[in-house]
């Protein structure tokens, strides 16, 4: 078990300590010791958010928050296993549902065509991330839904911005991909060898 002593730290310190520890590599169990209730709640939340089951017990004035990693948790872990040695990791970030400016109708068509043609990148296509209006490509009645589902089935990681789905009130409409957050997106950008922005 990995043990982190985060006593004496005010929020968000203890969460950042836990985050730094998970960033060093995966672990099945982690114990974070904190000395205030706010930190206890925040560390529990953080661990749950990252696929752990969190339990707390008190030891004197301290709280011991123990996280056990849940097998088969669907969220993307912070650290990715290497895809294949020698292959580049190409990430495509789609922030709109139409390509370019000018004619919207044309833009929608171009975007559909773009998504359908993406597999020409080959096995180096590592992640497809949808943010802002781009999330509308992942919902019911999206023209590219069949292509996206096929990509996902073939192992492509598709991440969809949760904040954006919430903003458009489309959380329940999403049909493909994992809901993600900005931290995962930023981490992905850092890990990728190439980021293509649309």
């Amino acid at each position: 078990m990995r043990i982190i002593d985060a006593r004496g730290l005010a929020c968000p310190g203890p969460v950042l300590e836990a985050k730094a520890s998970l960033g060093k590599g995966p672990t099945d169990t982690i114990k974070v010791i904190v000395d205030n209730e706010a930190a206890q709640h925040n560390v529990s939340r953080f661990l749950v958010h990252h696929g752990f089951e969190a339990k707390t017990h008190r030891e004197g004035n301290d709280f011991h928050v123990i996280g056990s990693f849940k097998k088969g948790f669907s969220a993307v872990p912070a650290e990715e296993p290497e895809k294949k040695p020698g292959l580049k990791k190409i990430m495509v970030m789609v922030a709109t549902d139409r390509m370019g400016f000018g004619d919207d109708e044309l833009g929608l068509k171009l975007m559909a065509n773009f998504i359908k043609t993406l597999n020409e990148i080959g096995p180096e296509l590592w992640r497809l991330i949808f943010v802002n209006n781009g999330v509308k490509l992942t919902i019911k009645n999206s023209e590219v839904l069949p292509s996206l589902k096929a990509y996902e089935k073939n192992g492509l990681q598709i991440l969809v911005c949760g904040t954006c789905l919430t903003h458009f009130k489309l959380l329940d409409e999403k049909q493909v991909g994992e809901t993600t957050n900005m931290l995962d997106i930023v981490t992905a950008m850092q890990v990728a060898d190439k980021v293509i922005n649309i």
Partner: peptide
């Protein structure tokens, strides 16, 4: 909107 995401990550101030 971003606050919802950060709340889930444990970024809640002690005052809350």
């Amino acid at each position: 909107p971003e606050a919802v995401e950060y709340a889930a990550m444990g970024m809640i101030p002690g005052g809350a």
